[in-house]
């Protein structure tokens, strides 16, 4: 790989990594409070994409520009965030809470999660059609500026900025707010948190909603970058899950780091080994890291945010 190629893949790699980070946070947050992998999180992502697609297709004029573009992007962010939040909220209520009330074993949660995932993506295929759809044009996607000579277009910039804003916002929320303290307390010791007056059910539900907002918005951003389809959640979902494990499941900063790493690895795989190896290296990295550090790069210390 020449230096020039290296440069050209950097921005797309970072953009993809930022997206994976945001999705990975959804997995790791829920794991933190419930010790369960919400495998239906990929469908939260997918439905967020569809939510934005459907609303924006209705309202977007042919060639928006300027302020209209900005408003459309904001509308897409809000709609996808709300759809993601609603989906995650419903998932917790329907697929997980009844099991928690009956103290079901972990395996049952896993089956319920996979079942919910199948149900949702097939439902989306049935409702919205099985062909991939492009987001309507929200802005003129020109090159904005160059970094070290590599072009940065509007979509990539939007993706990176939005993802970073979400990551920073979430980090502040978890470390600085009362809700964040409660989430950390529940992750560390739910029973002790209850003795402090923390309503665990409410915190679990809010944790799902926070993860859902991030996942839904990631779906919209992903759709802008490529397309929206009922199967779009699968690869990003499984990669982001791998990213969360790679960084140390339950560890927020680990999820961010793992997402960035896998986004870059996946992107650089293409010029290095060819397109057909795109998804292989990410998992090879995962396996390699876990062989030497089974708790992930930053460690799976539960409830730890740093």
């Amino acid at each position: 790989m020449t230096l020039l190629e290296f440069r050209d893949y950097l921005v797309p790699g970072l953009a993809l990594g930022a997206l994976y980070s945001v999705i990975a946070i959804g997995y790791t947050l829920v794991y933190g409070v419930l010790k369960l992998i919400n495998f239906a999180h990929s469908e939260v992502f997918m439905l967020g994409g569809f939510g934005a697609l459907i609303v924006l297709t209705e309202v977007a004029p042919g060639h928006p520009s300027g302020l209209v573009s900005v408003l459309l992007v904001l509308l897409g962010l809000v709609v996808s965030g709300l759809v993601g939040a609603g989906t995650a909220f419903g998932l917790e209520k329907v697929a997980y809470r009844p099991l928690r009330k009956r103290n079901a074993p972990a395996l049952i949660f896993l089956i319920s999660a996979i079942g919910a995932s199948f149900f949702l993506y097939n439902l989306a295929g049935k409702l919205f059609g099985r062909d991939p759809k492009a987001m309507p044009a929200l802005f003129d996607n020109g090159v904005l500026f160059h970094v070290l000579g590599a072009p940065v277009d509007v979509v990539k910039l939007l993706l990176i900025v939005a993802a970073l804003a979400m990551i920073v916002g979430l980090d502040l929320l978890v470390r600085r707010t009362k809700l964040g303290s409660a989430i950390r307390a529940v992750a560390q010791d739910p029973e002790a948190a209850g003795l402090m007056g923390v309503d665990i059910d409410r915190i679990v539900s809010r944790t799902f909603v926070i993860g859902g907002v991030l996942g839904g918005i990631a779906g919209f951003l992903f759709g802008l970058n490529s397309q929206v389809s009922f199967t779009m959640g699968f690869i990003p979902g499984i990669t982001a899950f791998a990213a969360a494990v790679l960084g140390g499941i339950g560890n927020l900063r680990g999820a961010m780091l793992g997402g960035m790493l896998l986004g870059l690895v996946e992107t650089y795989n293409v010029p290095l080994f060819g397109e057909e190896w795109r998804y292989v290296a990410a998992f090879a990295v995962l396996v390699l890291v876990l062989m030497f550090r089974p708790t992930g790069i930053l460690g799976a210390k539960l409830g730890r945010t740093a």
């Binding site: 303290s181 950390r184 307390a185 002790a192 409830g303 730890r304 945010t305």
Partner: peptide, 11 residues
């Protein structure tokens, strides 16, 4: 104040 203290170790 529970048995085994149960403080939030990472806080």
């Amino acid at each position: 104040s529970p048995e085994g203290r149960r403080v939030f170790a990472d806080m």
